[in-house]
Amino acid sequence: MTTFAIIFGFGLIAWVISPLFKKSGQVFEVHSQAADLEDMKSRVYHNIKDLEFDYALGRLSEQDFQTIRIAFTQEATQVVARLEQLQKHDLDALIAQDLKKMGDGPAAAVAAGAPKFCMDCGHKNPAKAKFCSACGEKFEEI
């Protein structure tokens, strides 16, 4: 019983602290702007649904319904547009990452000497640029 308890205790300790000895200094993802925007999107959508429900039950005047609905729709359009932009941005980054994964092949060689295009404004920058000379956006190390 005692032996078993001791083995069990040490086993448990070893299991708990084992991740600390892993060499990989992997860092987990910090929140993205996309999550915030998704939040805002679902909020606007819910608000529109509520509004329609309240109107259907006759709690709002026609005029209030129309005014508020237009405001919500505009808000939704803005949020969705920003999300789209962000997703495109993410895709660009993903493609660049995939290319990098393919190793020092011709693609990498081209990439190394090729001019950088800003993902935000599209401005063409020299290959070694760290920031976009037009809009100041930082180039990610890829």
Binding site: L12, V16, S18, P19, Q26, V27
Partner: peptide
Amino acid sequence: RNHRESMYQAARNGTYA
């Protein structure tokens, strides 16, 4: 604080333990 995966793993294992 430092978003380190290994620390987070240890904290999770600790919670189960």
